[in-house]
Amino acid sequence: MNTIKELYDYREMIFSLVRRDLKGRYKGSVLGFLWTFLNPLLQLGVYTMVFSIIMRSDVEDYYLFLFVALVPWIFFSTSLSGGASCIWSQKEMVKKIYFPREVLPIAFVTSQFVNMLLSFCVIFPILIINKKPINIQALCWLPFIMLIEYLLSLSVAMLTSGITVYLRDVEYILAIIVMAWQFLTPVLYSIEQVPEELKVIFTLNPMSPIIIAYRDILYYGKAPNAATLMQAIILGIILLMIGCFSFSKLKKHFAEEL
């Protein structure tokens, strides 16, 4: 409870770290902030090329099918792998200044989240151009799904960033974990294509319901299924509790370990 109040006092620090990250990222490049939009657009171009010319898929508009899932997935996976080093990389600050340590993972995940939102600015016009059905009622669910994904990403970022301080390997192991995790999440294919006996793994994976929901809303234009939602919420809350609890234990010795 104290931590939450303190985090509120330090909200300006979170905002300015996010602002610094977003503004500082493309500083010095010619196109500057435009890259934030250009990047997903170019990615989309590559996927379109590959999947409509080289690897044709049965799914209609496969590149869109993929893209609406890939953007949220990239948000999650960056929070997981990049978030791991967010405390380590600020060690000078952590060693010398007091602030609630949670600020660092929160700022990192938030800045990734804003990035995802900006990518969505690219997705919507393309969905409209491709005459995908836009269901207003379904779209109302989108912020809710995003919030759950945000909390989920924050939990893993807290967990990995805290552990990385004590065990530097985590950062490198995570690269592989993220790759494997992507294939255990219906990003490249739909959940229906998964063999029945493997479905258990997919249901335990907190990212599965979220990716499915994104695709339901954006690609199929329908409201996400209630069971999927409940599953996402419950898994999200459990993970958040684990993340917060372990972080509060780990943070006590950050300054000594760094």
Binding site: L17, R20, I97, F99
Partner: peptide, 26 residues
């Protein structure tokens, strides 16, 4: 620690905001 969080590419004014926010100011 002085100058925590300073970003070299940002202006002095912007850095004042970053740095002061680290001290917990809104």
């Amino acid at each position: 620690e002085l100058g925590a969080g300073f970003h070299p590419d940002m202006s002095g004014r912007e850095n004042i905001y970053i740095n002061a926010s680290i001290f917990g100011l809104n």
